[in-house]
Design a protein around this nucleic acid. Structure first.
Lengths: 350, 350
DNA sequence: TTTGATTCCGTGCACGTTCACGGAAATTTT
DNA sequence: AAAATTTCCGTGAACGTGCACGGAATCAAA
């Protein structure tokens, strides 16, 4: 207490009269130690307030960790590309600690590709895994395997039913939809709104935006009950058909003005919007893709809600590094990132 | 390139035929090395891609750093109290690296107190300093002293005229005012708005919110030119007089509805606002004090603009630790934090 | 009592740096 | 050419921990 010096393992050695080796065995409880010595060391450690020097440990131990990150292929300026910077930042710190980070990518529209990625991941025997789970069933198989091998794993973006994960970093989807509706209407009494959705194949993919839509609709029901919500489906693989779809919709519903979209693809309808300007129109979307931000700057998009996929991976990797390297459990298991509202006036400093 | 192993200082030794000591002297360029050896080592380091092992360095070097943080006394739930968590987070990592963080507090309304704090700071001979500069002249004296002693320093919150600082972390004040006006009016044509300001004594304190006000007024001039802006002054030390002041103002200007405030004290007028509810009224303030957030949750305040004083100190301390411990210069010198828009619908996850 | 097995423990090297110290080599002075 | 400097360089002991190895002590079996 009184002494300001840092207390080392050798202090425990001196205090207990035992040896380095024994003290070390106790501290890592790997047995081969008598009950009596065990207690003596524990008491001494407690009393002296011993904190192991992490860097000395790292230096001494030959073990190097490998963290695998399983996520969809990061097409340029796509949602998943946003996470790249987070991975790089995490890489810096983890590599400084003698670890490695390996990306394992899959095609987010192909279950086979996901399955194949899982195989690649397992055979590289990582020390820890970050998972962006888009396929429910396949993910649970992977998780089972990891649990059997006692490899800790962390979910990002969304979280399946599963109880063996180390931590989860994601966005509160329902609340983000609620917020989206508030940004769209401002609680004002708008008569109607259009929601643009992505046509999905009937893959057994989980669609995380369903909760977002629920939040959106609940907000309207509570704050703007008279508002009618229309839906229109587009296909990102056929961008040339989007204009026609929108033309068709607005011919039938000229009174609709405000538009929301629950995924990162709001930029897909920007060309149409800019070809059909309308004063006072509010447009709200998600995620800070470069294309979205450009539209925000031009005023075509009123607000974007950003969820920091980069922060998510970074924190996920850090949590794994903490437990693997420093043996420190994450503070919270379920972590919700904050939702940032981006407008043309604050996007500059983002 | 080909070998996957980490390259150590000893690899350079082997490659150059020189000794550990010489290589070390070159790497830390502390002289006593011939030109020829110097070049040889540098070339080898370059070619091998040598990265020093930080932890081995830390282990070997006896030097422990002390980072002093000079900032106003952190009254409970005040703006400066927000930075506490950032200091604590930085403390964790810095103490892990064998450093210490010391807060040096002063009374933000007393220049004598600031001067006295500078004295205390200097005599503890810190290795680096974080400064929240509220008094222009005194700050420049301190900075001069630090430069003479070659102690690196970082500004947070605001930045005086000075060119010797290592880095600056703050908020773009002008733009925050612009954003504030946008959040208040939404670009809609409001007839008038009220700005509530803090009465200041004629100390030679710098008032960082002047730029914020400029941004605010410019937005209105550009987007809502017909809008009339009124000002009212209140004194935080006489909260009991606030109600009267506002009563007086609104008796004379009943048409005014929307209210903005450029500092963290929006909570001061919340009691009055809640005693005088008015439908559709927009109220915008700054900073996520607990009192402000409570009012935001209740809907009394429409939006808060948050500037992350905690992130500011944390990054500032990290920048110092980087340069002092790892000899790594900050990526950017002037760093503007992002401005977050807080509403009752996204404040939950903040 | 001797042997063998078991449980427990200490020794010593390694990890990649930093840095003080002492000394060789090169250069200048007498 | 010897002495005195100056410039440059190598050696070796830390820093705090991990871990392999070998050996002492204890106990059971012969």
């Amino acid at each position: 207490m009184a002494k300001n010096e840092t207390v080392t393992l050798m202090d425990i050695v001196r205090r207990t009269g035992l040896s380095k080796g024994t003290v070390d065995r106790v501290l890592h409880n790997r047995g081969e130690v008598s009950r009596k010595s065990y207690d003596k060391v524990m008491r001494a450690a407690e009393e002296l307030g011993y904190k192991p020097n992490v860097y000395a440990s790292l230096l001494a131990s030959p073990r190097r960790i490998v963290i695998a990150v399983l996520l969809p292929y990061q097409a340029p300026d796509s949602f998943w590309a946003l996470s790249a910077s987070g991975i790089e930042r995490a890489r810096e710190s983890v590599e400084g600690l003698g670890g490695t980070i390996v990306k394992v990518e899959y095609d987010q529209y192909s279950m086979d590709s996901f399955r194949e990625a899982c195989g690649r991941l397992l055979e590289m025997e990582p020390s820890g895994v970050v998972i962006a789970p888009l396929f429910k069933h396949e993910t649970s198989l992977l998780a089972e395997e990891l649990r059997a091998k006692e490899i800790p794993y962390v979910y990002i973006d969304s979280k399946p039913d599963d109880d063996g994960y180390l931590a989860y970093f994601g966005m509160p989807m329902y609340d983000s939809g609620y917020l989206c509706a508030d940004q769209l209407t401002g609680g004002q009494d708008v008569g109607s709104a259009l929601v643009i959705r992505i046509r999905r194949d009937k893959l057994r993919q989980s669609d995380p935006t369903v909760n977002r839509r629920a939040g959106f609709l609940d907000y309207l029901a509570e704050h703007v009950p008279a508002c009618t919500v229309h839906s229109v489906f587009i296909d990102p693989n056929e961008p040339e058909r989007i204009d026609g779809t929108l033309d068709g919709f607005f011919a039938a519903h000229p009174e609709v003005r405000d538009i929301a979209m629950f995924n990162s693809r709001i930029h897909l309808i920007v060309p149409w919007l800019e070809a059909h300007p309308r004063p006072g129109r509010r447009v709200v979307g998600f995620d800070n893709l470069a294309a979205n931000i450009a539209a925000l700057r031009r005023g075509t998009v009123s607000a974007l809600i950003a969820q920091h996929p980069d922060e998510q991976v970074r924190l996920a990797i850090d949590a794994l590094a903490d437990i693997l390297l420093l043996k420190r459990a994450p503070a919270r298991r379920d972590n919700f990132m904050h939702m940032d509202i981006l407008t043309r006036y604050n996007v500059e400093y983002y």
